[in-house]
Nucleic acid binder design. Sequence first.
DNA 1: TGATCTTACGTTTAGCGTAACAATA
DNA 2: TATTGTTACGCTAAACGTAAGATCA
Lengths: 284, 284
Amino acid sequence: MLNLIELEQFVAFADYGTLSKAAEHLNISQPTITRSMQHVEDAFGVPLFIREKNRITLSPTGKKAVSCVRVLLATSRDTVDQVPRYHKSLHSVTVESCAPAPLWTVLPELSSHYPDMSISSCIQNPDDILNHVIAHTCDIGILPYPVESKGILCTPILKEALSICVRPGHDLASMERLTFSDLNGFNFLLRSEIGFWDAMCRKTMPASKFLVQTDDFAFQELVYESTLPCFTTNLAADNSGMLQGRIVIPITDPEATVTYHLILSANKSNAFRGFLRKYSVLPY
Amino acid sequence: MLNLIELEQFVAFADYGTLSKAAEHLNISQPTITRSMQHVEDAFGVPLFIREKNRITLSPTGKKAVSCVRVLLATSRDTVDQVPRYHKSLHSVTVESCAPAPLWTVLPELSSHYPDMSISSCIQNPDDILNHVIAHTCDIGILPYPVESKGILCTPILKEALSICVRPGHDLASMERLTFSDLNGFNFLLRSEIGFWDAMCRKTMPASKFLVQTDDFAFQELVYESTLPCFTTNLAADNSGMLQGRIVIPITDPEATVTYHLILSANKSNAFRGFLRKYSVLPY
DNA sequence: TGATCTTACGTTTAGCGTAACAATA
DNA sequence: TATTGTTACGCTAAACGTAAGATCA
């Protein structure tokens, strides 16, 4: 009977040329690999080696065996890889969103529908999200626009509208509505990890500078203490009270209002049936 | 690391439903297979079983693992199968002939050209020979006619002409030549293991009876002692002297004279280059 | 002399079966 | 009570590394 550990040593010998070098790379002693090669030869029942006094090389049959064994070991690695991946797919949900806001509602809903599942999420750029959903490395994606792709279900779930927050007395404080072109050139405080909004702000307001804060507490303190304008949306709750005293002015450009769309592979629709029931998911 | 023996036990459990039954079929104790299943589970790193107090079943992940492992074990069996087959193909030549006579010259020639090879031969019917050469389960075939088949080389090598041997005084003894229709109705002594000749005689002389002798000595004694006619050819040497005193009369039907053709797979022509040099092998 | 492979030897590991136990139908 | 799976225990066999031997460049 074949032994996968010995077969690993066998291909290591083929790769490194001598038993000593293979043993060294595998952190085992030379005698061990000598014995293993004898076992492998016994298991195949035909001579695989040309043995000279202090040299051992592969016979033509041995070379054939190496190529067969490489396939076998690849199959073995694939097996060890696939099974845990399958297990994970049964017991976890991965969500990738283009922005944090939709996760605030989607993640709790998933948790309540699938209490035994571990739910993991991350912020990604929209192109990657679509690719990951197609490649099944992600279960549920959230994009700022609809997609039409074969085998992908897509449905709108939420709207988010961007506004600006300024201190009274700021140049813009008296405006009832604003456009990106009005804002272009002003500097802003910006939170990190806001997904596609970051790129959108830099594109629509190229003359502006953005003071990105990674730390949440630091961001809140800066908003509270400084006169720099910042952003908020209809979905953001001001739990820290940092916006108290600030004037919220909506931005009227179409880019400032997005409709989030939930996407998933069509052949996972059954698995997420309960969760999807509240949305009217349509195949494109 | 996976262990193929334990994986065999794993699929046996899947096949037989309980550990006890699997253990029984594999001739091992129950505790052994219990431990093996724990090892397999450890190797995959994810739960494969649903364990109840005195019942163990496969989890969904376990079922997935079983199907993956079946593939792996099939690959393993295939590997163990292919390597010795390859070794054999490097160190042996198999010849299948439609009749014994051509082997008397071809086998010695092969032996002298490839002294390190083991040469095995057998008598087969022509259709099977062609199929075996095409399927590479036979290296060299000898047919009583030429074939045209893609990838098959074919060349004429020998002629064999059938004659009849009778005692002086026999009804046919005075004839200079004969046809199968002249012979039809007479009974004959016939050697076994004469390949296609056997079917040919029965077809061309349906009214005759053939006393087939398996034992070579018995055949010679019968020829020597009886008055029953028998057959010989231009290629048969009468080493035993059994034909002394018999009259040899040629058979003139076209079926009584055959030209043997050597066939082999075109992609083996290089391996048999030395042997083939004496024949002018033409691809059809 | 340094590198290579093999054999010998003693220790340690791990694999197996028997036996005992717990739980179910 | 018969069947099933797990755990405990002791024995055996196999696997390993060190050491020694043999051969070659």
